[in-house]
């Protein structure tokens, strides 16, 4: 018994070791391009142009980062990205939760038809509605405003679908018990069900924030004034015409700079993000 137990432990340990080695190898493979980008960002542009191997030896410089920070509008662009991505994430969570609760728990005429119509939104590519939306926003004078950058993202059929499925999976007995205690529909939603959907909301929030932070095309054609650029548009606008050859170090520092806020967020909220994503996957 003891030896069997010991054998299982040894076997599992070997398996664990193999998995660990594989995980480390995969992590290194995944981190190699990031390390390459960081290394390039610490080199002088002219040096990289004449000798790419110079990346493997000193001198290194932080001048590329200094140049980014010296761009007068860069902090405004970061603020714009935070407002747009943060605002969009909060509003998407509110709307998707309310809509998901409604579709999952309330009875009203044409509920299923309406749900199908919402889901059809998943099949409509953004490009198909781009011109019509741009014209509408021009007419409404929404371009170069925060709401002009946030509103299109609020049509989030995936969020509604995710939250609907999540609410449906919660036992109805909880609602019934609360109803017996004379709780209103909104109170049931707010006090009883919403706290149970935190993992789904975290997942939806993370995906919404990331996609909004990295969004390029809509901010490019809607926020066309320099003071309304988001970070992605702003840093792209600072690239010289032949940045990939003549300004490679600067280009890479821009990539690091744009990605850093997301990385910092991840470091702070790592525990919640992993729980959220794995929780959503299990469910």
């Amino acid at each position: 018994m003891s030896s069997m137990s010991s054998g299982r432990i040894v076997g599992r340990s070997t398996g664990d070791r193999i998995i660990l080695v594989l995980v480390i190898a995969l992590a290194l493979i995944m981190m190699a391009p990031i390390a390459w980008i960081i290394a390039l960002s610490l080199k002088d542009n002219k040096e990289l142009m004449t000798d790419m191997n110079s990346v493997f030896h000193a001198p290194y410089t932080i001048n590329n980062y200094v140049n980014i920070l010296a761009t007068s509008s860069v902090f405004r662009w970061i603020l714009n990205s935070v407002i747009v991505s943060g605002g969009l994430t909060i509003m998407t969570l509110v709307l998707s939760s309310l809509a998901g609760y409604g579709f999952a728990r309330l009875s009203f005429p044409f509920r299923n038809t309406l749900f199908v119509i919402v889901l059809l939104g998943l099949a409509v590519p953004e490009q198909a509605v781009l011109i019509a939306r741009h014209q509408l926003f021009s007419w409404l004078k929404f371009h170069n405003t925060y709401h002009g950058l946030i509103l299109p993202g609020l049509a989030a059929p995936f969020g509604v679908f995710l939250m609907t499925q999540y609410f449906r999976a919660i036992p109805k007995e909880l609602d019934e018990a609360a109803l017996l205690d004379n709780a209103s529909r909104f109170k049931i939603f707010w006090k009883v069900l919403l706290p149970l959907t935190i993992p789904a909301q975290a997942t939806l929030g993370i995906f919404t924030f990331l996609s909004s932070w990295n969004d390029y095309f809509w901010p490019l054609i809607s926020g066309t004034k320099k003071e309304m650029y988001t970070l992605t548009i702003g840093i792209a606008s600072t690239q010289t015409n032949f940045a990939q050859s003549e300004g490679l170090g600067f280009l890479m520092s821009q990539a690091v700079f744009a990605g850093a806020p997301i990385l910092i967020l991840y470091l702070f909220f790592q525990k919640y993000i992993v729980t959220a994503v794995s929780g959503a996957a299990v469910r």
Binding site: S138, F217, L220, I221
Partner: peptide, 20 residues
């Protein structure tokens, strides 16, 4: 001055469409 990513024509076309 507003700088745009090269060549900037998507942005310019959108600005013309928006009348700005």
């Amino acid at each position: 001055v507003t700088t745009v990513e090269w060549p900037g024509y998507d942005q310019l076309t959108a600005q013309f469409a928006a009348g700005d």
